[in-house]
């Protein structure tokens, strides 16, 4: 771990932004503003968690739906039986544990095989939960007495801040160097003595903690749990979309991707409710074709090129 100072700036910044978001925004935004902000912040938490494994190592996972769903399920099972905070933590750790269990065998396959395998695992878990619920005679579960929207929002902000710091530390620590070495060349990484297997499984487990808690907060918002909704593969695809649109080599890209897609869809949804998904699709195609390294990656490159031109001889760090 080279220099904690590397983290100090961004972590301090994240803390300030989070505090501002948690305590200033609710006073300015109305009920709807808070709902929008909650959605946005939960997506930020999700993309930051996803990037730890999939962004840094290149193992693109469609498994986040399973972690969100598993967290939500554990949360509703413990609802009313344990303190609220304990339920949230349990939701996170259950998802993390699930990732550790399936991670070992799953991470033996690579590329598109891994992508579809994680989809398969997520669907398997979904239908397992559907069957368990059906055999228990349950048909959706209600939660009465969920927290107020503004409190859910504040928890979501806290969670997003934690996710961001996790992604940041994972990126710039020795752990992150190992992960990125796996992406560049897994065989070579192994030969230089990096414990590839442990790193990958560890990253998978870490990246599943936050979505478990997101799942719990999501069902707090509607007060209703139903497995088909909570284990939606669409969620996993949307996460990838945000990360690739923003660029997924560091925490900033996904952050920008989440902001970009959420704000864009909010604007379109409001002004063109009929056409907005079509327009969103077109924008997505455009972004991928024009900016193969994502919005953030492309912007950094352009800026670097410009500054190089302005100050000849100077190199960017």
């Amino acid at each position: 771990m080279k220099a904690p100072s590397w983290f100090a700036g961004p972590i301090g910044g994240a803390l300030v932004v989070a505090l501002l978001a948690a305590f200033v925004v609710p006073g300015m935004a109305g009920d709807y503003g808070i709902e929008f902000a909650t959605t946005l912040v939960l997506w930020i938490a999700l993309v930051q968690s996803w990037v730890i494994l999939s962004g840094y190592t290149g193992y693109v996972s469609l498994g986040h739906a399973a972690f969100v769903g598993a967290g939500a399920y554990v949360f509703i099972l413990t609802w009313g039986a344990v303190p609220f905070w304990f339920g949230l933590v349990a939701a996170g750790f259950t998802s993390g544990l699930l990732a550790l269990i399936v991670g070992g065998p799953c991470l033996r396959v690579r590329g598109p095989y891994f992508v579809i395998l994680t989809l398969g695992v997520a669907e398997f878990v979904k239908y397992a939960v559907i069957n368990i619920e059906a055999s228990l005679g349950k048909f959706g579960r209600l939660m009465i007495g969920t927290p107020e929207p503004v409190d859910i929002y504040r928890m979501a902000v806290g969670l997003a801040a934690i996710a961001f710091v996790m992604a940041l530390v994972a990126r710039y620590s020795r752990f992150g160097v190992g992960l990125r070495a796996i992406r560049e060349n897994e065989v070579a990484a192994e030969m230089t003595g990096i414990r590839v297997r442990w790193l990958k499984v560890g990253a998978f487990g870490l990246s599943a903690l936050v979505p478990g808690v997101v799942g719990a907060l999501m069902i707090c918002r509607t007060g209703y749990f139903e497995p088909l909704q909570m284990f939606s593969p669409q969620l996993s695809l949307t996460i990838i979309t945000m990360c690739v649109a923003g660029g997924s080599d560091n925490p900033w890209g996904p952050l920008i991707g989440a902001l970009f897609l959420n704000i864009l869809s909010e604007l379109l949804w409001d002004s063109a409710p009929e056409l907005y998904t079509v327009i969103l699709g077109v924008v997505l195609v455009f972004v991928v074709l024009r900016m193969p390294e994502g919005i953030y990656g492309t912007a950094v490159k352009r800026l670097a090129r410009r500054s190089r031109k302005a100050v000849p001889g100077e190199t960017t760090p």
Binding site: G111, T277, V278, L280, G281, L284, V285, V288
Partner: peptide, 27 residues
């Protein structure tokens, strides 16, 4: 684009195309 990046990028391009085709049909 080459290598693994093709797979990732194409996934997203097709995700976009799929959104356009599906929602156009629905409209």
């Amino acid at each position: 684009v080459q290598g693994d990046a093709v797979e990732g990028s194409s996934l997203l391009v097709f995700f976009g195309i799929s959104m356009v085709v599906q929602n156009s049909a629905s409209l």
